[in-house]
Structures are given as C-alpha cells and as structure tokens.
Design a protein around this nucleic acid. Structure first.
Lengths: 184, 184
DNA sequence: AAAAACACGTGAGGC
DNA sequence: TGCCTCACGTGTTTT
C-alpha cells in the first residue's frame, strides 16, 4: 500500500532499496526458499551467494530502467510511458531524424554544388562530370566493411582517405577541389 | 539444454513459443507449482487466471525484446548486445544526431547567405574567407573520440581532402584509421 | 472487474 | 572460479 506511492514516482526519482534490501539479505536466504546456497556453509555471513545475486539483479534492472528513462527524456514525442512504447517512439524518432538528415544533406549539397558551379562561371558540363568522378573515386581505395558480429549492418563501403576512413554514403556529394582557389 | 540453442538465436529471429505455451497452459497450473489459482475452482478450464497471466507476460517480454532488437538494427554503432548497452548507444546516437541536425541547419543558412553574397558582390573575397575556415577545420579532425558518444561539435565548414572538398557535416562518422581494426 | 504493466526473486548459462 | 546477463513465473499495482 505504501509502495504504490513509491511506484508512482519511479520514473521521476532515483529510488533506493534501503529497507527492503536489509531485511531481504538477513532473512530471505533460508526461510521461505527451498534453495540453499552451497557457499552458505562457510559461515554466518549474511551477504553470501544468492542474496548477492538478488541485489546485483536489482542494480541491473535499475540501470536499464534509468537508461530507458533517459531515452524517454531526449525523445520529444512520447505517447505512452510504457517501456515498449518508449522504445517504439524512439525508433520512429530516430528514423525520421535519419531521413530528415539525409534530405537536408542533399539540400546542402545542392546549394554547395550550385555555388561551386557558379564559381566555375563558364560551363555547367563540369558539374555532371563531377558526379562521375565520385564513382571513379570509390574504387580508388575501397574496403568492404566486414562488421565483426554485426549482421544487420547495411552494405556500406568504407573509403580510405589519408589517415581516415569514411563511409561511402557520405560521398554522395563531392565537390572538386580546383573549383575553389588554390591553397596558398 | 536444448534451450541454449534457442537463446542463441533470440535476437536474430522472431521466436514462437508454440510448443511450450501449449504444455504450459495445460499442465503447469496444478502440477509443480504450490500456488493454486483461486479462480480455478470454478471449473476445469485450463486457461484460467494465472496461466493467462503467464502467456500475457511472455508476449509483453517478447514485444519489448523485439523493439529493442529493432532499435539495435537502426543504430549504426552498437558496441555490445546488452539491453542496457543498446539503449545507451541509442541515446548517444540520438544526441549526436540531434546536435548534428542543428549544426547542419546553421550551415544551410550560411551557405545560402554566402551564395547570395556571391551573386551580387565580388566572389574572390568570399572564397578566401572560405579557405580560412577550411584551415581551421583541418586541425580539428581528431574529434570522433573512439567508441561511444561525446562527439564534439565544432563549427562546420568546408574541408579539403585531396582534390575534393567536403562539407564537414559529413564527417560525423569519421573513423580514425588506427582505431578501425582494433575496435570491437 | 479484467487486462495491462511492473518489480521481484530465482535458476541457467556464458565468459 | 565468480560475475553478469537473461528468461521465466509470480504477486502487485495501475488503467
């Protein structure tokens, strides 16, 4: 009965299992459980074996709940407070954020592209040649990303440039360097 | 023991508790459990009370697991398969996606501005201004902080690499070369 | 009143 | 070896 108030504030505050844990570790290990810990024979140490597992499990649960709560905090449109709904809304939010990012990058590239073409100032044909050089660039040094254990990773190629690796999906908008003025 | 194989494929496939559920609802309510459902006294209906709760709970757990699995699928850099780690990595990914979106919109505004300026004024000065930001960007390039999260968000400009220019917003998933092989 | 969501303890299994 | 993660069934609370 007095727990209901506590459950109500579960997502809002950090809970402490102060009282329950004490009585749990003192009495629970040999009273109403048929399971007796084998390591309990060494002495009267109350925090032995199974009771340690209990508190460890509690910490694990609380950690996941805290992270779920943090996830709920950064996702703007949460409909329900369910654990499953929180994850579902987060998935939707991530997806719409991803496709919006892709769209916006295309928009940026178009701006930058037209700007570069304006700097060329005489031929627009070079702009189309630019897109071709993107494909030529990819086979210059391309790795197939063999993700270790990640089976769900999409077939994105990793391109080596200098000391860095790039995902090929970000190479969709390349601008030739010589369209700008040279490095002094 | 034969469950271990099943547990191994838990995250990869959609599981069905077809067989277990049947034998569970038929026999579990009165054989090996000391708990007897009070509503079981009304008749011989096997799926009454507690056993319904069991299968409902299973569905709930599976639903949350499926969604967590779907969340793991759309987040690119998942380090561990833990439930808590999946949520944690998703939080980091959402955060860096959010701040990247904000950055990118600023970049759009700047591009539009500079493009408008180019259209009316002399463009050489703007190009040199652009080159200054390029130079700024070059020694910032150590920013991806291997592993999870905390990607700093410096001012975004245009980067020169080889014979090409990149928008630095494309570098959000830039991977340092040496940490590629030993990571994960 | 019934269904849904939750926290809990517990055994199994994997490093 | 012990720690960690997990699924499970159960009782309780919320809707």
């Amino acid at each position: 009965m007095e727990d209901s108030n506590e459950y109500q504030w579960y997502w809002e505050t950090n809970r402490f299992y102060n009282a329950e844990e004490l009585i749990g570790s003192l009495s629970l290990d040999n009273t109403l459980s048929a399971y007796v810990d084998p390591s309990a024979a060494d002495g009267g140490q109350p925090s032995s074996g199974a009771s340690r597992n209990i508190v460890s499990e509690r910490n694990r649960r609380q950690k996941l709940n805290d992270r779920l709560y943090a996830l709920r905090a950064i996702v703007p449109n949460i409909t329900k407070m369910d654990k499953a709904s929180i994850v579902k809304d987060s998935i939707n939010y991530i997806q719409e954020l991803q496709e919006q990012e892709e769209r916006i990058q295309g928009e940026i590239a178009q701006l930058e592209y037209s700007r570069a073409c304006e700097n060329q100032a005489d031929q627009t044909s070079l702009c189309k040649k630019n897109k071709r050089t993107v494909h030529e660039q990819q086979h210059l040094s391309s790795y197939v990303s063999g993700g270790a254990g990640s089976s769900a990773s999409p077939p994105i190629q990793v391109i080596e440039v200098g000391h860095y690796l790039f995902l090929s999906s970000f190479f969709c908008h390349l601008i030739p360097f010589h369209s700008y003025d040279n490095k002094t």
